[in-house]
Nucleic acid binder design. Structure first.
Lengths: 196, 196
DNA sequence: CCCTCAATTCATCAATCGATGAAAAAGGGG
DNA sequence: CCCCTTTTTCATCGATTGATGAATTGAGGG
């Protein structure tokens, strides 16, 4: 990592270099958003020439897609659905907020989605299919999908406030406190009553 | 607007040109976000040379600030606080969602805040002072500020879902329907009970 | 051990962008 | 009506960026 790299192929596993680039891409995208992130910055963080990034992943957009396969795993989804302690809203808040606030993956996604149409579509697709569709059928009553979306958007808003905008009251609060406060609101959306 | 502009000062009021640039700036910033928006595109939309933009407003960041003085007016705030029909949460949801979803001003702000540190600070400042501070004292109970911020973040999330990401369920829904569904959640935050 | 192929850097291009400085045209006070 | 100021376009610079092609070096099969 500290060697002066000469030209040509270097010893060791090329796969390490590849995943290193992906990791660097994720972190730079998360920090700077899609537009501001430069291939050169990603390459530098990976300790690699910028051409190598293109060689492995093609265009910048290809790299972004490759680096962000799946923000939240299906396993996470199952954990939310197939109970445990607490209400559904509580599990949902805790699981998604923890996942979103820990890694940089979703942050990169959201940041990128703001300015880049492709990333925006990916995010929309992710939320609608892997999120709304997954819960569909488990939530009853009229407007089920809209109520689901409202619950999800609440979490997105909290994520934005804490991670992107940095509203103090939310950024400084204990995560579990937030979860306990938010859970009843989510349960109200997921519970079924049509809201007067 | 359709004339071939020769060089030099043009007849008519220069203030018209100025406000035209500001308007163009708002719309381009809203569409593209801060990074993607180019001075050249703004100038073209205003029917003006790009240098004129610099002449009037200096740097790109200066222009952004000048174009987005205040997303939501103090008058709007008062309308929310000093009742009328419905609960506080209902007035809050209706007023802010309408304001945020109608003009392009807040959209530009949010988009810009994602990638530009200055815009991010402006947005944070706006939310925290003109929003949280304004309600402070009117909301009782422990964690008042956090609960306020949760209510605000819920609205931000809905705005994101509808305007930025374009989640169908929320984008297609009637605004008044959303307001009625969300209001009880907001009231819960603003009402005072500490949430078990 | 050689020869091909994959991995990697170097050099460089074309495009774009923000910004500046000079030139041209209209306004307006004296 | 003249002259200085303001407003506007034109020309251009320097920096940055994504991308490409050639050169160099290691890996690995035969």
């Amino acid at each position: 990592m500290t060697d002066r790299p000469r030209r040509g192929r270097r010893p060791g596993d090329p796969a390490v270099t590849r995943t290193g680039i992906l990791e660097a891409a994720r972190s730079v995208f998360a920090e700077s958003g899609y537009e501001r992130a430069t291939i050169r910055a990603i390459a530098e963080r990976a300790g690699v020439d910028s051409s190598l990034v293109h060689y492995h992943f093609g265009t910048k957009q290809d790299l972004f897609v490759a680096a962000h396969d799946f923000p939240i795993s299906p396993a996470t989804l199952r954990a939310v659905l197939e109970g445990g302690e607490g209400t559904l809203g509580e599990r949902m808040a805790r699981t998604y907020l923890t996942a979103a606030l820990s890694g940089g993956s979703l942050e990169a996604f959201v940041r990128a989605a703001i300015s880049n149409p492709t990333a925006r579509l990916l995010l929309k697709e992710f939320v609608e299919s892997a999120f709304l569709d997954a819960f569909e059928g488990r939530i009853e009553g009229p407007d089920a999908r809209l109520r689901m979306a409202l619950a999800a958007s609440h979490l997105v808003g909290i994520f934005m406030a804490r991670r992107i905008v940095g509203i103090d009251a939310i950024a400084d609060a204990d995560l579990e406190t937030i979860v306990r406060m938010v859970a009843p609101s989510l349960d109200r959306y997921l519970g079924g009553e049509p809201a007067a």
